[in-house]
């Protein structure tokens, strides 16, 4: 009798491993009705690592350019498009039932999005509806059920095994090299029909900070300022430096709280996580919470007049000097 049991278990285990080989992943695209957000390409890279079929869902009031771009992404089998007023403002309350309907039809093993404000707001709601425990801000995929993420502001690295049958994960954009949007030939399909409008929430407006500089989360070079800048006007010297380096400008929480710059420029545990080739921290002491957002940068430069500032412990190059002297000098010499 025991042998029968174990045989049954063994067959089940085999069956499970066969299932594993047929992963099918849904990537939820992020876009702004005009262009595809770059983080979607990082999420696609994560989906590619899982293996198996990749389907991308594009929902919005205008989806043509994002879905068009996605059909050309290598590895994508299908792009499902849901266009309509219901998705105005990309509210999780309207996109969740759409994802559930799509999942019901195609039965995904994984549902993935970038760990942006959009992905963070949406995925856990979907997970709750499917009664599965999601994983946030994943930095590595070890196998279809084993993932790596950071905890405690990046001060510990956790490897987790997800037991639910649908794995819902948001991925850290900077941890996955973006896939290109050239060479692929996915087909476009229409999403399952349904009434996705949610009357409980109404999108009113967005006020986006306008900038000609590269986007912070994906910039190759980032110049960041902290409390040491002393005022919003003084940030001008950083903007000048950023323009010389074609860099995005970031900030520490102290600079945001003091009102020098808007919130969306904050780099850190609770702001944006960046990992550029070059990160220049100016007048930033380097609190744990700030380091969480930038310590994976390839090269870190710190400019601070306090030689004991913790930022020097992670900096590849440090200048112990007055930023008001050194930054203008750099601007002149670059």
């Amino acid at each position: 009798m025991f042998s029968t049991c174990s045989r049954v278990l063994k067959t089940n285990a085999n069956f499970a491993s066969i299932l594993h080989r047929f992963e099918s992943t849904l990537v939820i695209a992020e876009h702004n009705n005009e262009i595809l957000s770059p983080i979607t390409q990082n999420a696609l890279a994560a989906a590619t690592k899982i293996g198996g079929d990749i389907t991308v869902l594009v929902a919005g009031t205008k989806c043509s350019s994002a879905s068009e771009a996605l059909t050309k992404a290598p590895g994508v089998a299908k792009v499902i498009v849901a266009e309509g007023d219901a998705f105005k403002g990309f509210t999780p309350e309207s996109i969740t039932p759409l994802v559930l309907a799509t999942h019901k039809q195609l039965n995904f093993s994984h549902i993935i999005a970038g760990a942006s404000a959009f992905g963070k707001a949406l995925l856990p709601r979907i997970a709750a509806k499917l009664d599965v425990s999601p994983a946030s801000d994943v930095i590595e995929i070890k196998s279809p059920d084993t993932f790596v993420r950071t905890i405690y502001a990046g001060n510990a690295v956790q490897t987790i095994k997800m037991k639910d049958n649908v794995k819902i994960i948001s991925v850290r954009g900077t941890a996955f090299k973006p896939v290109s949007t050239e060479g692929g030939s996915a087909k476009i399909e229409t999403a399952p029909a349904g009434d996705y409008k949610c009357n409980l929430v109404e999108f009113i407006k967005q006020e986006l900070s306008k900038s000609d500089r590269p986007e912070l989360a994906s910039a190759k070079v980032v110049v960041s300022g902290g409390r040491g800048l002393k005022s919003g006007e003084n940030f001008q010297i950083l903007y000048t430096l950023a323009d010389k380096l074609n860099a995005a400008v970031g900030a520490s929480r102290a600079a945001v709280d003091a009102g020098y710059v808007p919130n969306d420029m904050q780099v850190g545990q609770t702001g944006k996580i960046v990992a550029p080739d070059l990160y220049i921290a100016v007048g930033i002491s380097g609190a744990i919470q700030h380091l969480a957002g930038m310590k994976d940068s390839k090269t870190i430069v710190a400019i601070n007049k306090d030689p004991d500032a913790p930022i020097f412990q992670v900096a590849d190059y440090g200048l112990v000097a007055d930023l008001f002297k050194v930054v203008p000098e750099m601007n002149e010499k670059l």
């Binding site: 690295v157 987790i160 310590k295 020097f312 590849d316």
Partner: peptide, 21 residues
Amino acid sequence: SPRIEVVSVEDPPVRQSGSIL
């Protein structure tokens, strides 16, 4: 009952110390 099993928790990679210029 747990839905996610923690396999391990480790220190993040340490950055090589840099230089003051």
